[in-house]
Design a protein around this nucleic acid. Structure first.
Lengths: 195, 195
DNA sequence: GGCTTTCTTGACATTGTGTAAAGTTGACAT
DNA sequence: ATGTCAACTTTACACAATGTCAAGAAAGCC
């Protein structure tokens, strides 16, 4: 129960979020603090480290953006193909929402094991979504015989990686909807059996 | 003209290469120096910065591993499909050779503009190889009508990214030959027209 | 012997993270 | 009104890694 409508912790999270989203080069702890209107030391009273702040921020973003609801929709699809399409769209459209935080977290992977574990954990959740879509395809007999379900899952997971999105949308300048369209088609072609 | 068979500069490059390849966590300038058997300061007499060392190292690796020859082979193919296959195999099999250096260079992208530019430059060269393969497909009328040549190039480029290789081979544990096989098939399915 | 190149040692500046300690401020209870 | 508590501030420091600077040693060359 927070008495103030926006307590300090939330203000920090929103400040960090804003800075990371804006693509600012400078995202030091002191920048987050300045943006939140507090001292750098006060920030450490709320988050023991940069890694923990970013991890908390991913949860914050999830809560605000409602990733759970979006992925739930993809589970409703009946056929394997629909399920694949729905998953690609749901996750593909979520990437832009977490890209800022994700990028910061990925940048820490080499130096901070805690950050690496947190990001890996989230990516494993995505992988499970991929695995579910692949299983649905297989149940329909629609999975290509060229790939084991495991391999198909790995391939889809890689196809839908944040790095891949970064390259196509940020580096190549694809519009987001084009990304989703092409990825949907590419995933179908890569995973589905038949003509 | 180096009088000694292996001059200091080369010894530094090989030392850095070995350390980066071995997957050692510690790849500080002082580690490279220690491995090369010289002081850290002497290292700075040969390379003004970590970025420049890594950039020189990419050229060194290219020379030793002969990337040019390998890619030249892919240009010999006559049909678009053969050319695509040959390019996927040539580049896909080169990735393991530059992965160590590439990883170190990628890790510096956010902090060092010079490193970012150097890596970007190399990746643009790969993109040109992708564009050539796509052009060959189009000349055969084999390119899918779903994609413009530009988009097909972007897609192939992303499919063959070092990050993608990293995920499938290093994270998922795919054998290298399986990676090449699946990527060949995936690229065909993604880019080629028809049943 | 002088000269140059290459390397060595040691000190120092810089940047960003994280720790530590002492003081300020305002709310709130009694 | 006074005391207490939580949240915050300021200041200072430890640490890791990069990169700079200066003084000197060792070896080859003329």
């Amino acid at each position: 129960m927070s008495s103030t409508p926006e307590n300090t912790r939330t203000r920090i999270l929103n400040a960090a979020w804003t800075l990371l989203e804006s693509g600012e080069a400078k995202t030091r702890m002191s920048d987050f603090a300045k943006r939140a209107g507090i001292s750098r030391q006060a920030l450490y009273l709320h988050f023991p480290s940069r890694a923990e702040l970013l991890i908390a921020l991913t949860r914050h973003v999830d809560a605000v953006k409602g990733i759970d609801d979006r992925l739930a929709a993809s589970r409703a699809a009946t056929t394997g193909r629909d399920r694949l399409d729905a998953f690609v769209a749901a996750w593909g459209n979520y990437i832009p929402d977490i890209y800022g935080v994700g990028r910061a977290l990925m940048a820490m992977q080499d130096s901070d094991p805690e950050a690496a574990a947190a990001w890996d954990n989230r990516m494993q959740a995505v992988r499970e979504g991929c695995a579910a879509a692949v299983a649905a395809l297989q149940a329909d007999g629609a999975l290509t015989p060229d790939l084991t379900p495991e391999q198909a899952t790995d391939l889809l997971w890689t196809l839908l990686s944040v790095r891949g999105w970064e390259q196509l949308v940020r580096a190549c300048g694809w519009p987001q909807d084009r990304y989703v369209t092409v990825m949907t088609e590419t995933a179908r072609r890569a995973l589905m059996a038949g003509a």
